[in-house]
Design a protein around this nucleic acid. Sequence first.
DNA 1: TTACTAATGC
Length: 639
Amino acid sequence: MNLSLLSSCKSLRSLQQLQAHATKSSLDADPLIAGKLLLHCAVHISDARAHDYAERLLRHAPNPDAFMYNAVIRGFSDSDAPHSSISTFALMLKNLSSQIDSFTLAFSLKSAANLRCLRTGSQLHCQALLRGLDIHIFVGTTLISMYAECGRVEFARDVFDEIPEPNTVTWNALLTAFFRRGDVGGAERVFAAMPAKSPTSYNLMLGGYTKLGEFALAGKVFDEMPLKDEVSWSTMILGLAQHGWFEEAFGYFRRLRGVGTRPNEVSLTGVLSACAQAGALEFAKMVHCFVEKVGLIWITPVNNALMDTYSKCGSVDMSRLVFERMTGKRSIVSWTTLITGLAMQGHGEEALALFLEMEGSGVELDGTAFVALLYACAHAGLVEEGSEMFDKMSKLYRLNPEIEHYGCMVDLYSRAGQLTRAYDFVTQMPIPPNDIIWRTLLGACSFHGNVQLAEKVKDKLSEMDPNNRGDRVLLSNIYAVAGKWRDAAAVRRSMAELKLRKSPGWSRIEVDKMVYTFVAGVREDGVTREAYEKLGEVMSRIRVEGGYVPEVAIVLHDVEEEEKEGAVAAHSEKLAVAFGMARSGGGRRVRVVKNLRVCRDCHNVMKLISKVYDMEIVMRDRSRFHYFKNGNCSCKDYW
DNA sequence: TTACTAATGC
């Protein structure tokens, strides 16, 4: 039998055929062939069943050698069942203890690290000590990583000190250990003491700094490092994107293109993540073209990132198109991304249909997929459908509902106005409800004007999160709407006395592939002045032609209120839209992204602008999309 | 057949 056939075996099925062929020719008795087959099965086939199959082969082999044990231990070490790797180690300890070598220990330790199991890791450390393998360069380095994963930097250090000739990889493992525990000073000392540095050492520093948001330090290392590889660029771009520095992430991407390095798929997903968060559609389209051009469109995570970006930029049609045309295998993430995208736009029915299609597609469902589905049902008023799916989740799919799922259900009933059902559901939950759940209910009380229930709910919230500003705003609004002025005023006084924190609100708009950020109350730069000027003109026109009346009176507007200064007149979304109108040169569409939920007054203003100026406004707020057109909003005034 | 670095959905 030709062993080179092995590399063409990409599926468990084709491998089993080869296996059958070997058995028929009595070749399976050859330990070399049996071992190679087993290794290929355990390591090179990305199918959970392949690992189990390899383990069965091992257990049935007449005289399995160390190579075969090692193959199975390795196969499980990077799977989602690392504990099977440990049980295989135990089997080897029983049957072939004398043959345990550096490979066995390195792979087993990797599993212990993935399991974050200090007990298992320490026991393996003992086995290594018994055999004098703890100072073996590969085993020792993996030991350091294992202790790092388990958060025991002092043990990692002890192992390091025993290794006679640590190489750069060993030093890197130690560096990782210090960062993992958040000891930046320690990491910096290790970095300074290293006798030699490979690009990985620098990249570890970049990763350590960017995770902490230390971009000045990261930038310095980045500029000083002699050789920047793909990981260096990806780390910077991803780190910036994850900390909300979108324009800076774009800057690194432009720089990367400028120096002629070809961005890899990780840099691309990173820059797409920045586009998604910032709502930068034009930049995203450019990245999409680039992905096609460099031939990385077959990579599933890149497609998923593209879909997510288009959805979050308000172009769910493009998202759907990417999904339909993707050449790579659709993962559970691909399906969930599109379902969420459809749900955010209020296309609940289509989201539900897609979920049903996913059920038949053979992908393994997970909890997040159900979060997306329940979110879709909640936003489209599909109460009974959502309810049924929630039951199905545990009964049919054996997925344990988590707090997010209960939250979705409370939202589902609340939005539909079934407050009693929502409240009963909360009181009968098998796990204790968190503040988010009570807050959902409080919001629903506010929307439906249920003062009695609101007071009950507020008591719960006061116990859990006594200093939350948003909760008091909601309660005050409930009283105000019910005409209980005295109660409303008392809540507001208590807020003033406590000087409760405010979440800073911002809105962003993309013009000519540049993203502009607006914050209420800040007005020094030219861009903001331009926005204010246009806003003044817009407001007076909608007052005259649209009959606008500001909703200031007694009701406090924002759930998570922006700057109260200047009342609601200068909320950041108004500034961003005005700026977009000033710069769009008569364009009929403006797209804005806001980090909080849009307030009622701004929502009203957007409707009027869409009518008076005959234009469309697409606004993504914290929970969904609003399409303003002809004086109406796609959310039907419920958000 | 082994060790250290970056990734997508709520």
